[in-house]
Structure formats: C-alpha cells, structure tokens
C-alpha cells in the first residue's frame, strides 16, 4: 500500500497528489511515468511523474472517468494498492541550447520537472502553457520559477494570450529562437502544435498517451507507429519525434474502449450510492 501524503485540487477537476513511493523517486526522472492500481478491482492506469520530493512522487490528473474519479475521491492519508515505476525512457535531457516546453491541459503538469532538468543541463527554457480557460490552468507559479520565461494562453482569452500555444510556437520558430521543443497534452493538441516545427530542423518531442496495461513492454497494448515502425510507447517512449508519429492511428486506438469506459463509470456511480459494498 502506498500512502497519499498530500492531496490538493489545483484547478477545475484537476488534482495534485503526493504519494509515498521511494522505489519510484529514487531513480525517477522527467519524461517517465508510473502505473497505479487503486484497489483489488482496479485497472492499471499510467500517470506522468510530475515531481519528486524526498520519497514522495507527485502525480497530477484530471478526473475524467471511473479510475481517475475514484482516485479523486480518496483523501489525504488514505492509500492506493499499487504504484509501479519509474516506467518509460527518460526525456532526452542534454545541452540543446534554447528549449521550449509546451503543455496543454493536464499535460502542463509534466513541464516543471522537465524544465528544471533542462535548465540544470544548461539550456534556456521557455514555458508555453494553454488551457480552455483560466480555471483549467495549473502550476503557473511553479513553472514561472522553473522556466526562464513563461507564456500563458487560453482558448477563450480569460487569461494571457487569447489563442493557442501553437501561435506562440510559430512566432518563436519564425524568429529562429529554438533548438528543441517538447509538446505534452492531448493527442490532437500535440498533433496540431507540432506542425509548427515541421521541416524546420527543430527537434520536437511529444509524449504519447496510448492505452496501456502493464507498462513494462509485455502486452503491446500501447503500440504506436513511429516512422512506419511499430514501437511500444511504455518502453520505447513515451516520448517520440513528433514528426514521425501516426496520429490518426493513435487517436483511433485511444477510442477502443469508449463504450466500456462509459459503462464502467455508470457502474461506479450506481455502486457508490450503495455505500461501497461489492
């Protein structure tokens, strides 16, 4: 059992948990993730490592379906059954020069740890974050500290630039201000944003989020097509060259269980009202 040592809601429907897991924190780095299972009946879901402090690992998640809603219902001091990690290949942190780290929605949570590592490696880091509206922005102060510069965007203009991170990225690309870019967010956002660096020679990483089961390379559920080749995102990734990704295939595979996910959530809400007896 792994204890939730700190729990906060940090934006609309978005939660920040610190979980005691020394085996994860010991070697965990930017770009890696954990797989958690809440209880005996639970599924295994991947969540990015968003921070490390002593023996505690931070996860930030949006309560979208059964598992994340159940997770959000847990309280500080309670425990989850399993947390495995760190999984995946760490981000390619080295001296690139000028980097941009771009986050959309809950993907923003992946940026502080990455920005810090990039800066420690001698890079100049610009953070660009975007959300539908002000209420969905997160970790602003922390990112402002972690980056040399931070640009905020909202789709509805409720804060910062009225528009998308892609707009800012395009400007920076045109001004030849970048050597490497990370884009982390929903698949469609990564697909569209990464077009800004296509054929510019700027190394562009995205963190892919296909459906996973074990997260250790054993099942192949997470397979993605990169430059025409099949890769397992949980071990070969999750970060890949944005311009090699078969985005449509990824998005189709993400929808594989839409029907069951709805059923699972309905079952959870029904069952919750009957007070937790199986």
């Amino acid at each position: 059992m792994y204890k939730i040592v700190k729990r906060d809601q940090i934006a609309d429907n978005i939660f920040e948990y610190w979980i005691n897991a020394p085996h994860v924190t010991k070697n965990g780095c930017a770009g890696q993730f954990v797989v958690i299972r809440i209880d005996e009946h639970g599924e295994r879901i991947p969540l990015t490592i968003s921070g490390i402090r002593g023996d505690d690992v931070r996860i930030v998640f949006m309560a979208v379906g059964k598992t994340t809603q159940q997770l959000a219902a847990l309280q500080e001091g309670e425990s989850i059954q399993d947390i495995a990690g760190p999984l995946g290949t760490p981000s390619e942190v080295k001296k690139w020069g000028r980097c941009a780290v771009i986050g959309g929605g809950v993907g923003i949570a992946c940026l502080p740890i990455l920005a810090r590592e990039l800066r420690e490696a001698g890079n100049e880091v610009t953070g660009i974050i975007g959300a539908r509206n002000e209420g969905l922005l997160l970790l602003e102060d922390e990112l402002r500290n972690a980056c040399d510069e931070l640009v905020i965007c909202t789709d509805d203009g409720s804060k910062g630039h009225h528009g998308f991170p892609a707009d800012i990225l395009k400007e920076k690309v045109a001004a030849k201000e970048l050597d490497a870019v990370w884009i982390i967010g929903p698949a469609i956002m990564m697909k569209i944003t990464s077009m800004a660096t296509l054929n510019t020679g700027i190394k562009t990483f995205v963190s892919l989020n296909p459906i996973m089961v074990d997260g250790t390379g054993m099942c192949g559920s997470c397979r993605v097509t990169i430059g025409g080749e099949t890769k397992f995102a949980c071990v070969d990734g999750p970060e890949f060259d944005a311009h090699q990704v078969d985005w449509d295939e990824l998005m189709n595979r993400q929808r594989t269980y839409t029907g069951q996910e709805k059923e699972s959530l309905e079952h959870y809400h029904e069952h919750k009202c009957r007070c937790g007896d199986h």
């Binding site: 009946h41 599924e43 295994r44 598992t67 594989t256 069951q260 699972s264 199986h278």
Partner: peptide, 10 residues
Amino acid sequence: KFPEYDTPII
C-alpha cells in the same frame, strides 16, 4: 468480470 472489475476487454 467487467464492470465489477475495471479493466475492459472487447
């Protein structure tokens, strides 16, 4: 045993 267990399958 889905949906009693959370993991889906086709």
